[in-house]
Nucleic acid binder design. Structure first.
Length: 253
DNA sequence: AACCGAGTCAACCGCGGGTCC
DNA sequence: GGGACCCGCGGTTGACTCGGT
């Protein structure tokens, strides 16, 4: 008996006191039952469908299994370059409206798109955080708007009066908060581990970020001389402004 | 070969909105 | 009007895989 099968059985018995509802991975028998039942009765009324099919699953679970896996027109395999760009474009417009984005990608599910963004794009961003692309984008925005003020160490420390442009960059990052094994970390945390290093010398969070945001003027301090922009920041900025990204995420193209 | 960490993705959970009685 | 139920969405979890050491 496979480990998966053992775990599946354990999952079943664990739920026996809860109305014998099964949880965990679907078996071939369950899939067959569900497909047959949907073919007979059509989609919808999932709770009723689950009961009539004799499936020990919730209607929710059946719906999810059908929509994300069993539905005949579901595409399998890697996202094409066009699809990746479309996802990025639509996400820039609508944010985390995965189902809405999925409507524009025939055969792709919201779950798949969500997973794509939470893995491929996050990975890219995390890499960017360390490789300097995103850091450069934030740096250039910050430099243009608050050249006199050292940047905060984390996005959480952003003062409420930062410009919309910089907020755009940070919200872009925030939308893709990273979860990684064990505890949860984020792109923010990546900076916490390795602070922005935006200024030529070590930067400490300015006092004004702690309590008196409005007392700060962007003209208080001179701009650090070594700040510079490169084309990487322009790429992200162009994405933030709504232009199509020229840099496909993921590594399967 | 064994271990570990990161990436992937199927599945679950909580919540809000819609509908029906 | 309001309670019960259902559905769909977005966020989160956890099992599995794979590459590196």
């Amino acid at each position: 008996m496979s480990i998966t099968a053992i775990k599946s059985l354990a999952s079943t018995s664990k739920c026996e006191g809860m109305g014998e509802l099964r949880r965990g991975p679907w078996t071939l028998e369950e899939d067959t039952l569900l497909v047959h039942c949907v073919a007979c009765h059509g989609e919808g009324r999932w709770n009723l469908l689950a009961r009539s099919a004799g499936l020990k699953r919730t209607g929710k679970s059946c719906r999810l299994r059908w929509l994300n896996y069993l539905k005949p027109d579901i595409k399998r395999g890697n996202l094409s370059l066009e699809e990746q760009l479309l996802i990025l474009d639509l996400h820039s417009k609508w944010g985390n409206r995965w189902s809405r984005i999925a409507q524009h990608l025939p055969g792709r599910t919201d779950n798949e798109i969500k997973n794509y963004c939470r893995t491929r794009v996050q990975r890219q961003l995390k890499a960017d955080a360390h490789s300097a692309l995103l850091r450069e984008a934030v740096r250039s925005c910050w430099a243009q708007n608050f050249s006199s003020i050292p940047p905060p160490h984390t996005f959480d420390e952003m003062p409420p009066w930062v410009s919309d442009e910089l907020r755009g960059v940070t919200s872009f990052v925030d939308r893709f908060a990273i979860s990684s094994g064990g505890g949860h970390c984020s792109v923010n945390n990546a900076y916490e581990v390795e602070p922005w290093n935006l200024a030529p010398t070590s930067v400490s969070t300015p006092n004004c970020f702690a309590s008196e945001h409005t007392s700060c003027s962007k003209n208080d301090v001179t701009e650090p001389s070594s700040w510079s922009m490169d084309e990487s920041s322009d790429m992200l900025k162009s994405y933030m402004s709504g232009a199509e990204s020229e840099v496909p995420f993921g590594d399967d193209n």
